[in-house]
Amino acid sequence: MATLTPYSSQAPSRAEVDALPGATVMEFGTNWCGFCQGAQASIAKAFEPHAGIRHLKVEDGPGRPLGRSFKVKLWPTLIFLRDGAEVARVVRPANAAEIAECLRICARR
Rank of each mutant, 00 (worst) to 15 (best):
K71C: 04
F47E: 06
L56H: 07
A46S: 10
H55P: 15
L56G: 07
I53R: 06
I53G: 03
A44V: 14
I53F: 07
G63A: 09
W75V: 05
A46L: 09
A41M: 09
G67P: 02
V72C: 01
I53E: 03
P65F: 14
H55K: 10
K71W: 02
W75H: 04
H50L: 06
S69A: 11
H50K: 06
K45H: 10
P65D: 10
A44I: 12
G52K: 08
W75I: 01
R64F: 09
A41R: 04
A51R: 05
G67C: 02
G52Y: 04
E59M: 05
G63L: 10
R64C: 08
S69N: 06
L66Q: 02
G52S: 08
P65S: 12
P65M: 13
G63I: 08
L66H: 01
L66K: 00
A44G: 12
K73A: 14
R64L: 09
F70W: 01
F70V: 02
H55Y: 12
L74M: 09
R68T: 09
L74I: 07
E48G: 12
A39S: 03
L56V: 15
I53L: 07
P62Y: 15
P49V: 05
I53W: 06
E48C: 10
P49L: 04
R54G: 09
Q40R: 03
V72Q: 01
K45I: 10
G61R: 10
K45M: 13
R68W: 03
E59T: 06
P49K: 06
P62M: 15
G67L: 01
I43R: 05
G52V: 07
H50Y: 14
L66G: 00
R64P: 13
A51C: 01
L66E: 01
